[in-house]
Amino acid sequence: MASETPVSARWLSDEARILFRPYRGYQQVAGEPIDVAPTVLALRRPLMTLLAIGWFVSMTAAGRLVAWHLGFAAFFWGFLPVYQMIVLTALFAFFPSPYALSWSRRVDLYFSGNGAWYLFMSALVAVCLFAPNVYTAMSALLRYGVLPGALLCAFIWSIVVSHAFFRRGCGLSRGRAALATLLNYLLWPGLIVGYYLLTNQLQPLMR
C-alpha cells in the first residue's frame, strides 16, 4: 500500500484529515510509517478520547478545566474506549485485514476517526463559554433543531468514518467493510444498552 505524503499532513492531525476526507484520509494515514512502540500505539488515542471526555465534562460543568473533574470524568467514563477496544478486537478476528497491520496500529487508526465527536463537543463547550446567555442559547438550539441536528450529523458522519476505517484503513472489501461497520454499531452501543438492562433502569420504564 503506497501513499504520497500530502502537504496537509504538516498542518493537520490524522483526526482532521480523516474527519474531512475519511476514505482518502485513512488510505494516506494507514500507509504512513509509524515509529511508536506498540503499547503506546494501542493506548495513546484511547487515552486521548478519555482526555476529550474529561475536558468536555469539566468545561460544561465548571466552565473551566479542573484537574479533579478531568480525572474523575476520565476514570468513570473509562468503560467507553475499553468497550470499543473489546468490540474492535472481536471484529478484527472476524474480519482479518489483508494489510500487515498490527492490532495496536488498527486500534490507533480506529480512534483517529473520533474527529466528528471532538468537533461536536467543542461546539457545545463554545456555546457554554461564549454565549451571552447560555440557557437562552441552548433553548434556541434545541427549539430550532440545531442541537439534535448536529448530534445526528456527528453520529452519521462517525458511521461513514467507521466504514472508511474498515474499507481503506483495514483494506476490507466493500461488503465486508459494510458488515463490519454494521456490527460495530450494533455491538458497542448494544453493550451500553445491556448495562442499562442489567441495572434494571430500562425495564420499569416499559411497564
Binding site: T5, R10, S13, G31
Partner: peptide, 18 residues
C-alpha cells in the same frame, strides 16, 4: 478551549514518503 481544538486537529509532523 483553543488548546484542545489545536491538539485534536493540528498536526505539524514532518513525514517521510510512505
Amino acid at each position: 478551549f483553543l488548546g484542545f481544538l489545536g491538539f485534536c486537529f493540528l498536526g505539524g509532523r514532518r513525514r517521510r514518503m510512505g
